[in-house]
């Protein structure tokens, strides 16, 4: 009796040698190798980032006590309490003020610095702006808390360097961190000092990707200086402008250390005077760790997160109209 053989797989015909054990192990592991490689980093991310984020989301719908004991479902209670808090709204205004000043100022100053550094590099003998670039970038690598403390002295109304210089020009210089009107600008000045170098480097990278040829072509057409910037450089730089806008928005909305330190967090005075510097981030911190009201802090964090997402979406949409040539 003969049965028709089922068609055999090609590999079997070609000659299947017996495979060694390590070989089989390798075959077994190969599909998962990629996951194994990312696992350490991913594990850390999940444990310390995604899980807490998820917990935060959950907590904002609970009356939560540290450790979990005695917690109960709260529905939208936390949101109701939060929205009834004038301080919450005030902190939004303060944050908004901070962001609305910081983002445009960051864009203008870091772009201007980038242009200056590039021009300096172009006219320097060795065609590099390494030194000026490093000097402007330097503040960014200093620790926020340490340099903030230094700036507390610089901005001291009585014996600070800032006012020492200003007194040469005006009779009564501002009270800086000690006045409600100038406390936020003080923080903005510090933050710009600290971060502008970083954004400048992003712009320098963007500028470097614009071929000199294009500027020469513009010059041949009689378009130079600011006109060339407006008609050639800026349009081609919009990807960098977008990147800097988004990064600056996210970073300023979450700014904490320098505000905490500059406004006297060391003596429990952060956010003052008179709540003039109490941003969202500061209020969240105080609510959680000062008043031990974790669920309310979680709710605020959630609101901040939603706000950030919304802003980023809006910015994306806005720039999709601007970054048209991609």
């Amino acid at each position: 009796m003969t049965t028709l053989d089922a068609p055999r797989p090609v590999s079997a015909l070609v000659g299947a040698e017996p495979r060694s054990v390590p070989d089989r192990l390798r075959r077994l592991v190969r599909p998962f190798a990629g996951y194994l490689f990312v696992f350490p980093a991913l594990g850390v991310l999940v444990v310390f980032y995604y899980v807490p984020a998820l917990l935060l989301f959950v907590i904002s719908f609970f009356h939560y006590h540290l450790g979990g004991a005695g917690s109960s479902f709260a529905g939208l209670d936390n949101f109701r309490v939060l929205f009834a808090q004038p301080l919450f709204w005030k902190s939004l205004v303060v944050t908004g003020y901070y962001v609305l000043v910081m983002v445009p100022a960051t864009l203008v100053i870091s772009l201007a610095l980038a242009m200056l550094v590039r021009d300096a590099a172009r006219h320097s003998k060795r065609k590099r702006g390494g030194l000026s670039q490093a000097l402007i970038f330097l503040p960014h690598v200093t620790p926020l808390v340490a340099t903030s403390l230094v700036w507390v002295y610089i901005l001291n109304p009585q014996y600070g360097v800032m006012n020492y210089v200003l007194r040469a020009f005006v009779s009564n210089p501002p009270g800086w961190l000690e006045s409600t009107g100038y406390s936020m600008p003080s923080i903005e000045i510090y933050s710009l000092w600290h971060s502008v170098g970083f954004y400048m480097v992003l712009f320098l990278a963007g500028l470097a990707s614009i071929p000199d040829r294009l500027l020469e072509a513009a010059r041949v057409e009689g378009v130079r200086g600011f006109a060339a910037f407006r008609r050639v450089v800026f349009p081609l730089l919009t990807p960098s402008v977008y990147l800097v806008t988004v990064l600056a928005t996210v970073n300023t909305m979450q700014a904490f250390s320098q505000i905490y330190t500059l406004t006297g967090g060391a003596h429990g005075e952060a956010g003052g005077p008179a709540y003039s510097t109490t941003t969202d981030a500061l209020l969240i911190y105080q609510t959680a760790f000062f008043y031990n009201h974790f669920s309310l802090a979680a709710t605020m964090s959630l609101m901040l997160f939603v706000l950030l997402v919304l802003l980023t979406v809006v910015q994306r949409w806005g720039f999709s109209k601007l970054v048209f040539y991609r």
């Binding site: 040829r213 294009l214 072509a217 040539y325």
Partner: peptide
């Protein structure tokens, strides 16, 4: 008037 090597047209 100048025509550049690789044209140098404005991409945007």
């Amino acid at each position: 008037g100048m025509v550049f090597q690789n044209y140098a047209l404005f991409p945007h």
